[in-house]
């Protein structure tokens, strides 16, 4: 009963803040509403006793990604800037895409809802299980994808450094700091 009430509150929050995030005129407010959506999703995970997912959701999305979003908004926008939606065909096409995605996801969820229930048995996930699953090499263990993703991220980081790095010619010492 209590769980249901909390679920409805969270679901309502997710729905309302999602709509606010895409309709808000100010981009920083959109980011804040998106943050609320992410936090409410984290709340759903907590409701399901998925503590690890909850913590990761909060750390990575709310604490990490949103901070980067907000920082980049700071760097690119002036306070008080407002969005002006001009091209209505863009709005219409994205609305169509959103509805299509909703239908697809809804179909998948409705089809698989019983199977999802069997996964969610309400027990707290052991960190050891999670660790061995992520680091094991047997069936249903994911060391290879894990490592591949880490190599991919490393490549991204090195690429970013290469792009951002200033060329330093050996003849001239860096003179920017002297002035």
């Amino acid at each position: 009963m209590a769980q249901q009430i909390i679920f409805y509150i969270l679901a309502l929050a997710i729905a309302v803040f999602s709509i606010l995030a895409v309709t808000s005129k100010r981009v920083i407010r959109s980011a804040t509403y998106l943050l609320f959506v992410l936090l409410a999703t984290a709340g759903l995970f907590l409701l399901l006793n998925y503590h690890y997912l909850f913590a990761v959701q909060v750390t990575v999305y709310a604490g990490g990604i949103m901070v980067l979003f907000i920082m980049s908004i700071f760097l690119t926008h002036k306070p008080g800037d407002q969005f002006i939606t001009r091209m209505s065909w863009k709005v219409r096409s994205s609305a169509f895409l959103a509805v299509a995605g909703l239908v697809l996801c809804g179909y998948i969820i409705v089809k698989n809802v019983t199977r999802v229930y069997s996964y969610i048995n309400g027990n707290e996930l052991q960190m050891q299980d999670l660790g061995t699953t992520m680091m094991g090499t047997e069936k249903y263990q994911y060391l290879l994808p894990f490592e591949v993703i880490s190599v991919l991220l490393l490549a991204c980081i090195i690429g970013a450094i290469l792009i951002a790095r200033k060329e330093k010619s050996p003849m001239n010492p860096p003179q920017g700091d002297m002035d």
Binding site: H51, Y52, A55, V58, A62, E124, Q126, M127
Partner: peptide, 14 residues
């Protein structure tokens, strides 16, 4: 929580 330390990191990152 079983994940106490991650929870601490998560909550303080907000």
């Amino acid at each position: 929580f079983k994940i106490g330390i991650i929870y601490v990191i998560a909550a303080s990152s907000l």
